[in-house]
Design a protein around this nucleic acid. Structure first.
Lengths: 344, 344
DNA sequence: TTGTATGCGTTATCAT
DNA sequence: ATGATAACGCATACAA
């Protein structure tokens, strides 16, 4: 069974395709009877306009490109969830592409998205991305871009991020308020804004509570498989070791928990542990880990809204670009989880 | 900067669009010099063929529709990862849509996908889906469908599923071999094949080891928020309570762990717990939970391969449909995790 | 109120 | 070896 077109309707009803087209779009210049006739028939044979033909005509695809490092990652899958919800509601579809933390893949993927004629791009850059020329290039080709979570200071686009400074401040503050004094801070290398912001929040909290900033306690770890454990070991082996760990990234927080367990370091008796995470089972971890949870879904939601706004603004070049605070930051939630370990 | 078309190239080079088109496709009927001229120029001005125009002409979109209950779910996001990898490699893109476990949404979503002219559909049906008329309808419209994970016996399509029987058998066998005799089995309502298969694996293991099948120990729980805890309570309060819990679904396994914790039931001292799960941090749970892990990525991979095969077969109607075992089942992995809880 | 013709970007068919 | 034209499905400017 082939798809039915306007032509089929026109032929069946002895009308021209333009009449049918206009009737279907409820144009004022078509008589009510003809409209009814056409509409009914279209309904009956289950006519569905071909969006591809429309796209060609209108030079828009109604597709948003979403580029993330990984789909199979709690933060990003939740963000995509938020994006998809908004897109669906506004009549857009979402094409999802992964970079696998590779700049090379990211460049290819961005080109692919443009080649696919997406109406706009939502991107969270890979950890390798220190140069954003590929993004600036497509921006010059007039493709609206919104960045989220992993954003670059060098891009002049809307940016939707979690309140990384605030979340980091709150986590550090919590540790201080529960009596910790030597708080290790571990993050990924600091060329991404997200890292810088989290470091700044940590520093600000220390400063506000009159604690010294000790560079020995601040470490940056790459994306290799086995890079974290030695760093945790080094920290524990310091002459004056930390009494708390603040792990500024999801993966690091979970890795730290494993590393501490392997070293038989008790939490929170010996050291306290808090991390940014987006896993849904943080309660069930051993021990339950206090976490700063980023509002992934809301970030996706906001980013998609902003992008669609940009896209639809582009259609009517009359309207002025609205000025907005940039980047938009969305509050994190801080979950303090007490150990519920049962007595033995 | 507008997108450059074949016309632009033709105009610039004083050629006809057909010559340019042929040159770009490396047709034998174009002179080498012209080819080089066109290719070089196209390269220089960064010509990208418009896939929308191609789609219209070729009546195919090179898009796969993927319909899942939720994106933000470890199993599905991993499966999508597998799908995306294959699609990318084969020159397809993936549009992802969610049903949120609602049949109503599923019906709408399937229609949307067809309206979008996807070349084929990968679907994992919602838990509400007891009737598959909407899928049969689009199958009659000649849209290739492959089902994965949550499949329906009433659909005549390729089906890619985990080895639910085998995984369930292995989990039950493990519990028996570690000395458990009264093994509770909890699953979602049994109209989905996936549930039936898991129940059958459980029954088969009991039978093989000469244990009785006790209906009191088998429970089905719906998708409500607070349905599980009372069921766990009931089981624990039986005159002859279970000494092990086998939770046949991810969500149930995690919920059971919480419920047992709330009841202060020690694992594995008092009861053993094993579940199907796809979370990546199962090691870090308290206690570490033994799990049957479905090969989500491989399921996605296989499903996408099968779908693309169907799609490309449809193009050349000469070739016969290959007969394949149906459904295809992919082995699970059983992870036995010993408690590593440190002494206090 | 309805019909005819044109164009969106591309390729296939049929000239030349 | 290259060019002109039609067609994919739709919307619209222009005619009637």
């Amino acid at each position: 069974m082939e798809a039915v077109t306007i032509k089929d309707i026109a032929r069946a009803l002895n009308l021209s395709t333009s009449t049918v087209s206009r009737a279907l779009r409820d144009s004022y210049e078509i008589s009510p009877e003809t409209k009814r006739l056409v509409m009914d028939y279209a309904e009956r044979i289950n006519y569905q306009p071909n969006p591809i033909a429309l796209s060609l005509k209108e030079n828009r695809s109604r597709v948003l490109g979403v580029i993330v490092p990984q789909i199979a990652n709690n933060f990003f899958s939740q963000a995509i969830n938020g994006i998809e919800a908004v897109a669906y509601e506004r009549g857009y579809h979402v094409i999802i592409m992964q970079t696998h933390e590779s700049l090379e893949r990211e460049i290819l993927t961005v080109q692919q998205a443009v080649a696919r004629r997406v109406d706009g791009l939502l991107i969270s850059i890979s950890s390798q991305t220190t140069n954003v020329a590929h993004l600036q290039a497509i921006q010059q080709r007039n493709v609206p871009i919104v960045m989220f979570d992993r954003v670059s200071a060098e891009m002049d686009t809307p940016k939707i991020v979690a309140d990384n400074f605030g979340g980091s401040f709150a986590a550090t503050e919590h540790l201080i308020q529960t009596g910790r004094r030597r708080i290790a801070f571990v993050a990924i290398p600091p060329f991404m804004a997200i890292t810088q912001d989290r470091l700044a929040g940590y520093q600000a909290a220390l400063s506000q509570y009159g604690l010294p900033y000790d560079e020995d306690l601040v470490r940056f770890v790459g994306f290799g498989e086995h890079e974290l454990a030695p760093i945790i070991d080094q920290l524990l082996d310091l002459p004056h070791p930390p009494d708390a760990f603040f792990m500024a990234f999801d993966r690091l927080a979970l890795g730290c928990m494993t590393a501490l367990r392997n070293r038989n370091v008790a939490i929170p008796e010996q050291v306290s542990l808090i991390g940014f995470t987006n896993i849904s089972v943080a309660d069930l971890l051993d021990p339950p880990m206090s976490t700063v949870v980023q509002p992934a879904q809301e970030i996706g939601h906001t980013a998609a809204e902003r992008l669609i706004e940009l896209i639809e603004l582009k259609q009517k070049p009359s309207a002025p670009l609205p000025t907005r605070p940039n980047p938009v930051s969305i509050p994190n939630q801080l979950f303090i989880r007490e150990s519920t370990r049962r007595g033995v």
